[in-house]
Structure formats: C-alpha cells, structure tokens
Nucleic acid binder design. Structure first.
Length: 641
RNA sequence: GGGCUCGUGGUGUAGCGGCCUAACAUGCCAGCCUGUCACGCUGGAGAUCGCCGGUUCGAAUCCGGUCGAGCCCGCCA
C-alpha cells in the first residue's frame, strides 16, 4: 500500500481522461487535419447531410466540434455501402476508417477539416432518427420560434444556437476567472428563501413540513450577500439564478441569471473601479473584436441622463440628445401656441430631438411617430422639417411665427434635411421618457448605432426615493438597502418631523442614493449600490418608506439583527448575464441565449410546464384547490379536448 | 388587465369572397448515378387552410369567439 505522504497518481493519463477519446471514438468531427493522413480512426456523430452517388456515398458527420466528410466506396467496402444507403439525416453513427487527403482540387475551404476525408470501412448505426421537424443543417432557414422551443434539443443542434450557448459559457468562465483572481469567493445561496415585500411578485413554494407556510424563490440574493459581508467574507460573487413572477418581455424571463457580487470596506468608486475593470476584461475575453466606445466608462448623473437622453440607460452609440427649447421660446414671450404655453406655465418642458435625414418624411411616416409617442402618454408630437435649402416648414408655424421656428431650428441645430421632433408636457418626466424612447427607436432605425461597438456607461446618483402618491409614502427607487450620498444623509427626514408620516414635501425626496447602474447600448445591464450598514440609518430609511418598526422586524429582522453584530461598510452590484450574453451575440431577445427558455406566457413548450399537480400533492401541503378556471396543460388546445 | 401582428402539406412562404380539384421552394419516399460538398436527374406521396361558430348561393379568404406564438403598454424595488 502506498505511503500516505506520496501524492496520489491518477489511474489514467491526463490525455486519456481529458481528451476527446471515448469508447466510441478516437477523435471528434472537428479534429482531423492533413497531418493525420493515414491514421486509422474511429469517429462518431450525427449525419449532417448525405450525398448518394449510387456506388459512392458521401456523409458529412457532425458533432459540436465540427464536420468531417466520410466516403464510402462500394467497391472497397460493400458492407459499409449497404449501411450507408439506408442512413438518413440525424442518424447517429460510429464509423471506422482511414484518414485520407482529398483528391486534388476537391478540398473544401469552408471546413476546418476540408483537406481530408475518412475512407470508411465499417459503419455502425448507433441511433436512427425521425425526419426532424425543421432544418438542422441549414442554419439560416427561418423557423417558427414556438417550434424551436418545442424541439429545443434539435434547435441547439443547429449552429447559431450552439454558438450562442458556447459564447455564454465563455462569458461565465471569464467572469469566474476574473473574480477568483481578484480574491472573490463563490458562495451558493438558497433557492428556497423567504418572501420579500418589495419589488416584483414572488414565486411561492408551499412547505410540506410547515403546512400552510411557503418559501419564496429569490428575486435576487440581496440580503444573503449582505449577510455574507457581515460574516466577514469580504468579497463574494455568485452566478445566481433569480425568479420574478411578472409579465414577460423579450428581455425578461421568469427565471434569469445574475452575476451577483458584494465587497466590504468599499465606497462607490471602489466597486465601480472593480466592476469596470472586470467588464473590460470579460469583454476582451469573450468578444475581442468588438471595440469599447469609451474608457474609462462615462459616468453620468441620473438627472443628466434624463435631461440629455431621456433614459436612465442611455444608448451612447449615437448623439441625438434632447434639446430644451424653453429658453429659445422664452426670448419671444408667450408663443401663442397653447400646447407649449400651458406646458411651460405648469412647470413642464418643451424639448426636441433632431432626426437626421428625416426631413422629407411623408405624412403617414409622421403619423406613425405621433402614434408611437401617444403610446407612452404624450399628447402629441410637433415637428419642424428643415428642407434641403435650409428653410423650415412646420404645421405649427402659423401659431409660433417664423422667428420662433427659426429659433427652434437654431437651438436644436437642425441641418438641411433634418426633422425636428418636439414634445411638450406639464410633466417633465413624461417629456423625457417619451423623447428618450423616440430617440432610441429612431437611433436604431436610422442606423446611427454601430452594431459592433460596446458603449458601456455608468449612471449614478439616482434619487433615493420616488413618491408613491396612492400609497402616501416614499418608495426606494432601486434597492431598499441602498445607501444615501453622505452629504444628503441629513435629508432623510420628513417635513412633519414624524418619521412615520412621510409626505411629498419631505426633503428626503431630494436625497441621492449611492446607487449606480451600468448600461450597455441602451440596455440596463446591471445596478448596484453601497448599502446602509448602520441600523439607525436603515431604520430611518425604512420609516420613510412607510414601514413601522414592527413591520420592519417582521420583514427584515434577520438582517437588522445581523447589523447589530458588526457590519462592515459594503457595496456591490448585480448584472444580468442573459442580457449581457444577448448583447454580445447581437440578439435583442434573451431567449436566444438561454438553453431552455419559457414563452411569453411562462410555459415550457418542450416539457409542458407548468402542469397541474396531483390532488395528493395538495393534501400533503395542506392546501385545497379552490379553482379559478379549469386549467389546461400548456401547449394543448382547449377546443381539441 | 389592455393594444397590435401572426397561425395554409414536415418546414418556410404564396393565395385574401367563386379562376383553389389550394401554388412555389425545400424536405420526405422510390429509382438511376463512382468525387460530391445546398450533388444531379426522373417519378411519387403529402395540407381542407389552428379550433368553434356566424355572414353568404359560395369562405383558406369576411365577422365573432377561442387556443397558441410574438411585439408592446401596464407591471418588472
């Protein structure tokens, strides 16, 4: 027996253990090159395509790694030819043969393995296959997405989906490497968690051992990572699955993945410095050919982002900034145009964006823009078109007069051929929101954004609270634990002096959070903050949000208690892995970078989830189904039953 | 909760009140073919137009409902 001090020797070599060889194959379909000529190999994979010339068969054999051409010559191996003639696309084969150089002139430059082929002696059909419901060997052929979802395992066989999953794997790998190098510890936190009151609707899991009680699936590991800071972990990260039971969108799934990280003894600057460096490294590792627009990332104050771009996640790949027309108009006194005058009189805004080259837009194109802004609550959309000769034309010229139109064109710096689009509203947030959405939409439609560029930017100093008029309380704009900018700490008071009687007039409304979001090409990639780590301040913040001490202890008792045992100053961020992977893959839909996503109605077309539980399961859980509608298994037609 | 779009052989589309006994491409099946690589050639099978109802002399086509998918508003700290 070996002495205890001797290092254990693996029973098999590194190459044998870690290499591609298995009992079924020596190499993969992507391995063989001209230098392998003469090798006798076994190879296995799926039939990608077959070309049957009667007594000569070609089969392209496919696996994750590539495509290798097999040749079966009836004259040389009649038995193999027999098998080859009944082989069909997507059959799984194992073959044995000799690597040979292809005939001069018949090399295929499109394939990595295009210089060689395998002359097959023996074919074994490992698995036959039905004709697939859509093309697997033609990556560009369009396929209805619900079909792809129903047969996701076939969709993933197709090159584009496979490549996106490979990219995603690379992304997560780069993230992990970067964090480990920076001393972060990867810690897993529970999926069966406790319901949190704020934020999105929770997914609920009934408990059998505690009948009547429920777990909630985490919307994010927020409280746990803060507890890990109290635990002295110092630097934590996790590739964490998160769950939110809200309506779905192209960029929102009921379960999604976040890079969640937290650091101790930091300020905003320190967290952002790490995250920025990490993002730069990860981008370089995953998409090395895509340039980052600006380094260091621009840091934009929330209010500036709203004023200039009408968005807290501005797409900086193009300009088209919002222009305030009020000063230009004010020079002439009241405009005589009710829409503008009333908006300004009520403390609102009149702002514009310039759509380059849209000056010749037809009536119906303008109407389309008007209905676009109406969807977001704008009452209308005024426009001034600048003709090729520089003269301005506008339906509202008859109200404003030529001097004001000229002033608008000058202020907005409208060039010949441009279209100036103007929104006026008493609600300045609505003006910003509508123009921001219009800007993003037009920017992409007009091709102003370079598809290849990665324009990361920070948006900072969000307001701590938003006023919720109907509930009569303040509401944390992002995370309820977000810290307040130190010089604004004194603002966290109510006007009345009663901590539990918030009003819209409270100075707290002006307090800025130590909150930072990271945006990429117009998408919110992530957000984080330096947290409040002192119990007293946290209690004050929660009071402003309308919680009594009792409620606070009920909901956040665990973390509040933890803070009594020595909490380090800490902060962190959470980033959407799915969105990041989608942006890296030039996709506008995160389903395209998820192996098994759900539909917009939250169903899984492949597995048929969610499904009805057995009645026993209810009774085990102490539950009774009182019913809504007779539920139907997803994917099945009610009428067909 | 709401708005919009889509649903036609296996797949992707065309047809949008009678010319449809539903067209095209591809796939599938059979036969032929020894250098292809989206192989080729010849022939064949395959959909009653998501489902239910209505309007009409007549519906894939118009209307209503419903199911499913997508996009969006609300929602998503």
């Amino acid at each position: 027996m070996r002495g205890m001090s001797e290092p254990a020797q693996p029973s098999i070599s590194h190459e044998a253990a870690f290499g591609p060889a298995t009992p079924y194959r020596d190499v993969t379909c992507g391995d063989l090159r001209a230098g392998d000529e003469g090798r006798d190999v076994r190879i296995a994979g799926w039939v990608h395509r077959r070309r049957d010339h009667g007594r000569l068969h070609f089969i392209d054999l496919r696996d994750r790694y590539g495509l290798t051409q097999l040749v079966i010559n009836e004259a040389e191996s009649p038995e193999a030819a027999q098998v080859a003639s009944r082989v069909r696309p997507e059959f799984v084969l194992q073959v044995q043969g000799t690597v040979a150089r292809r005939h001069a002139g018949s090399e295929n430059a499109d394939l990595e393995t295009g210089d060689i082929e395998v002359k097959v002696r023996e074919i074994t059909i490992l698995s036959e296959a039905e004709t697939p419901p859509f093309y697997i060997n033609e990556p560009d052929a369009p396929v209805d997405e619900s079909l792809r979802l129903r047969y996701r395992y076939l969709d993933i066989r197709r090159r584009p989906m496979l490549e996106r999953l490979l990219l995603r794997s690379k992304l997560v790998q780069a993230i992990r490497e970067c964090h480990h190098r920076a001393g972060f510890v990867e810690v897993e936190t529970p999926i069966l968690l406790k319901s949190t009151p704020e934020g999105a609707r929770d997914f609920i899991v009934p408990s059998r051992l505690q009948p009547g009680s429920v777990y909630a699936l985490p919307q994010s590991p927020q409280q746990l990572k803060q507890l890990l800071m109290v635990a002295g972990m110092d630097r934590y990260f996790q590739i964490a699955r998160c769950f939110r039971d809200e309506d779905l969108r192209g960029d929102r799934q009921p379960e999604f993945t976040q890079l969640d990280l937290e650091m101790s003894f930091v300020d905003e600057q320190r967290v952002m410095d790490f995250v920025e460096a990490m993002i730069v490294e990860v981008s370089a590792a995953v998409v090395p050919d895509r340039p980052i627009q600006q380094l260091p990332f621009p840091r934009i104050d929330y209010h500036d982002a709203i004023e200039r771009f009408g968005s807290d996640k501005p797409d900086l790949r193009f300009g088209m900034e919002l222009v305030d027309l009020a000063p230009a108009l004010a020079a002439f006194g009241e405009t005589g145009f009710k829409v503008f005058d009333e908006a300004l009189a009520a403390g609102g805004r009149v702002k514009a964006i310039v759509a380059p080259g849209m000056g010749e837009s037809s009536r119906s194109q303008i109407d389309e823009l008007v209905s676009f802004v109406r969807r977001f609550g704008a009452k209308g959309l005024a426009h001034v078109s600048v003709a090729a000769d520089g003269t301005a034309h506008s339906p509202i010229a008859k109200f404003l007069g030529d001097e004001r139109i000229a002033a608008i064109v000058k202020t907005a710096t409208g060039q010949p051929g441009d279209l100036i689009l103007i929104v006026a509203d008493a609600d300045h947030e609505r003006v910003a929101d509508v123009l921001g959405r219009l800007r993003q939409d037009l920017g992409l439609r007009l091709g102003l954004a370079d598809e290849n560029v990665l324009a990361y930017c920070w948006v900072m100093h969000f307001p701590m609270y938003q006023w919720e008029a109907d509930l009569g309380r303040w509401h944390a704009t992002h995370n309820p634990f977000s810290g307040v900018v130190p010089e604004d700490e004194k603002l966290l008071v109510t006007a009345s002096g009663d901590a539990y009687k918030p009003s819209h007039a409270d100075p707290a409304g002006r307090a800025r959070a130590m909150q930072y979001d990271i945006a990429l090409n117009g998408w919110e990639l992530g957000g984080g903050s330096v947290r409040i780590h002192k119990r007293a301040l946290l209690e004050r913040s929660f009071a402003l949000q309308g919680y009594t001490l009792e409620q606070m202890n009920e909901l956040f008792g665990g973390i509040l208690e933890a803070f009594d045992y020595g909490a380090p100053p800490h902060g962190g961020i959470a980033m959407g892995i799915d969105r990041w992977a989608a942006l890296f893959s030039h996709q506008t839909n995160i389903r395209e970078v998820m192996a098994f996503p759900k539909t917009q109605s939250g169903t899984d077309l492949m597995l048929g989830s969610p499904s009805l539980p057995e009645l026993e399961q209810y009774s085990d859980l102490g539950l009774r189904f009182v019913g809504v509608e007779p539920a139907v298994e997803p994917g099945k037609d009610k009428a067909a039953q």
